[in-house]
Amino acid sequence: MAAAANFLSKFSLSNPVLQSDCRRRLDPYPPSSAPNLTPESLKNLWLSTQNLWLRSSTLKTHALGQRRVSTIISFSLPTAKPERVSSIEKAPKWSSKAIKSFAMGELEARKLKYPNTGTESILMGILIEGTSLAAKFLRANEITLSKVRDETVRLLGKADMFFFSPEHPPLTEEAQRALDWAVDQKIKSGGSGEITTSHLLLGIWSEVESPGHKILHTLGFNSEKVKELESLISEPGFVDDL
């Protein structure tokens, strides 16, 4: 019993060694290193916190600014002839439906596992978007997405099932020329307004050797249909891609 009592006495709160250890645990600042909480030190602490908040706000604003710039850039389509106009402000803008059609074309190229976005992919993108005058005109002439997709696979073949397309499959030369043709035609017309999906479709047709043109021709699109579409979009007061 005496030995047990002697053992327990080592862990008693009255034990000076244990009391000293408890004080060290409860007081993280020894007397020599305790913070000097004077009004001046508190003021400096507040200023440091304020500066940190200002730096954080500046970084956030800068990041938001970068996102805004990225968004503005995304409202255009690739061009091989940026020098065609004297300034960005004078360059005609693409309509939102034309941009969406282009994006859907890129996605369709990836779904088919093709390495590039060609005129056939942009043609499918127009039909996938589906609400533009060009898409409605194609469907009215019995040119549908499923038919274009089938003709694309028949013409270009199936891709390797283990091939993975890049996130943004680069444009073929023919597809790039089709985009530039649409911009040039809008500039030549001298009219106000945007470059629409109809211009994009006519640009695809202008590339006679491209897969997009060949598919359109196979499905019954011809020069008479082109004249009909051009007549529609050139009517006074007509607004496309609403």
Rank of each mutant, 00 (worst) to 15 (best):
S189I: 13
S189Q: 04
S189K: 10
S189M: 09
S189E: 13
G190W: 00
G190Q: 00
G191M: 06
G191A: 05
G191Y: 00
G191Q: 11
G191F: 00
S192G: 11
S192L: 10
S192N: 11
G193H: 14
G193C: 13
G193I: 08
G193F: 14
E194D: 10
E194K: 12
E194V: 06
I195Y: 02
I195T: 09
I195E: 01
T196P: 04
T196H: 01
T196I: 11
T196W: 07
T196V: 02
S198I: 00
S198F: 02
H199S: 02
H199F: 11
H199K: 01
H199G: 05
H199L: 07
H199E: 05
H199Q: 09
H199T: 09
H199Y: 15
L200C: 12
L200R: 12
L201Y: 04
L201D: 11
L201Q: 07
L201W: 10
G203W: 09
G203N: 07
G203F: 06
I204V: 13
I204L: 10
W205C: 00
W205F: 12
W205R: 05
S206N: 07
S206D: 05
S206F: 02
S206P: 08
E207K: 14
V208F: 08
V208Y: 12
E209C: 06
E209T: 07
E209D: 14
E209R: 12
S210T: 11
S210M: 06
S210G: 09
P211S: 10
P211E: 10
P211Y: 00
P211L: 05
G212Q: 06
G212Y: 03
G212D: 03
G212E: 07
G212I: 06
H213C: 12
K214D: 01
K214M: 07
K214A: 01
K214V: 01
K214R: 08
I215C: 03
I215H: 08
I215N: 00
I215G: 03
I215T: 03
L216H: 00
L216S: 02
H217T: 11
H217V: 07
H217Q: 14
H217D: 08
T218G: 11
T218S: 10
L219E: 10
L219P: 09
L219F: 09
L219Y: 07
G220C: 15
G220M: 11
G220W: 13
F221E: 05
F221M: 02
F221K: 02
F221I: 01
N222M: 03
N222R: 13
N222S: 13
N222Y: 06
N222V: 02
N222F: 04
S223M: 08
S223T: 13
S223N: 15
S223L: 10
S223V: 04
E224G: 04
E224Y: 00
E224K: 03
K225C: 12
K225W: 00
K225S: 12
K225F: 05
V226S: 14
V226K: 14
V226I: 12
K227R: 13
K227W: 12
K227P: 09
E228G: 10
E228R: 11
L229A: 10
L229F: 05
L229H: 09
L229I: 08
E230H: 08
E230F: 04
E230A: 14
E230V: 11
E230G: 07
S231G: 15
L232I: 15
L232W: 14
L232C: 09
L232G: 04
L232D: 05
I233K: 03
I233D: 01
I233M: 10
I233E: 03
S234A: 13
S234M: 15
S234F: 14
S234Q: 15
E235F: 06
E235I: 01
E235M: 15
